[in-house]
């Protein structure tokens, strides 16, 4: 394993990944920040994402997309893992509350344990304050050591998480 990536190198890879994934581009999901081994992605509020037309609250499913993307990207920020393709094995989301209508949603994630083959990742989503998450997520991802994400991103047909 080579030297750990700097925060700005990690950020560059994640930004490229967000722009390579058609559905992330569609929703405007973008990198908010990388701090060490934790990343934050932002999902801009859009009327199409509303789940309850009476309240304007964003659909739980849109949070699933954001959390799957954020937790699935956390491997890039984990110094023991780096740029590897990691398909999702499972994902569990606890819905703790709802974001007020009109606000962007942010999601943070980090790998809390990396074994040789599996990444155990945790994260949460919030709108107004990190201290008041609206959802919490845990999941596991499989490391595909034979598939280097960086190399894939350098080719034009790049992809990110498998599925």
């Amino acid at each position: 394993m080579s030297a750990p990536l700097s925060d700005s190198e990690k950020a560059r890879i994640i930004e490229r990944m967000c722009s390579f994934i058609p559905h992330c581009r569609q929703l405007g999901i973008r990198l908010e920040q990388v701090v060490g081994e934790e990343l934050t992605l932002r999902l801009p509020y859009r009327p199409e994402l509303v789940g309850n037309p009476e309240t304007g609250v964003i659909h739980g499913g849109a949070l699933t997309v954001l959390l799957d993307q954020t937790l699935g990207t956390a491997g890039i920020c984990c110094d023991r893992v780096g740029t590897m393709i990691t398909p999702t094995l499972d994902l569990r989301i606890d819905h703790l509350g709802t974001a007020p209508a009109g606000l962007d949603i942010l999601a943070c994630a980090r790998v809390y344990k990396a074994t040789r083959r599996i990444l155990f990742v945790e994260g949460f989503a919030y709108s107004q304050s990190r201290e008041e998450p609206i959802a919490r997520a845990t999941g596991s991802w499989v490391q595909m050591r034979e598939l280097d994400l960086n190399r894939l991103l350098q080719t034009s047909q790049a992809g990110a998480q498998q599925q």
Partner: peptide
Amino acid sequence: KLIGNPTLPAIHGGVVGAFMEQ
């Protein structure tokens, strides 16, 4: 517009989850 992996191509896993939740 729902593609999460352009190389396969495959639908974004989060979208599959969102569909199932709905």
